[in-house]
């Protein structure tokens, strides 16, 4: 299901800035990143690669139905 979990977040916010499609946000209370809009995840892994503590797990499966040109 695209980006799956964020565990061990230190709240640096780099994944929020790195995500091209605004999937991740910081929780105002805890300061930690959370998956806010998973359906928009394009599974590009930028967030994971930018995370200094490697907190992000991503699966290759998309959350919403996938439209392709043929199947």
């Amino acid at each position: 299901m695209s980006i799956t979990s964020i565990r061990g977040c230190i709240g640096c916010g780099d994944c929020v800035r790195a995500c091209p499609t605004d999937v991740i946000r910081l929780d105002a209370k805890t300061g930690k990143a959370f998956i806010a809009y998973v359906e928009d995840c394009q599974i590009c892994h930028l967030c994971r690669m930018y995370c200094p503590v490697d907190a992000i797990i991503i699966s290759p499966e998309k959350m919403i139905p996938v439209v392709v040109s043929w199947r």
Partner: peptide, 9 residues
């Protein structure tokens, strides 16, 4: 064909 939406993969 498999996991078509996974840009990274």
């Amino acid at each position: 064909d498999k996991n078509s939406a996974a840009s990274f993969d």
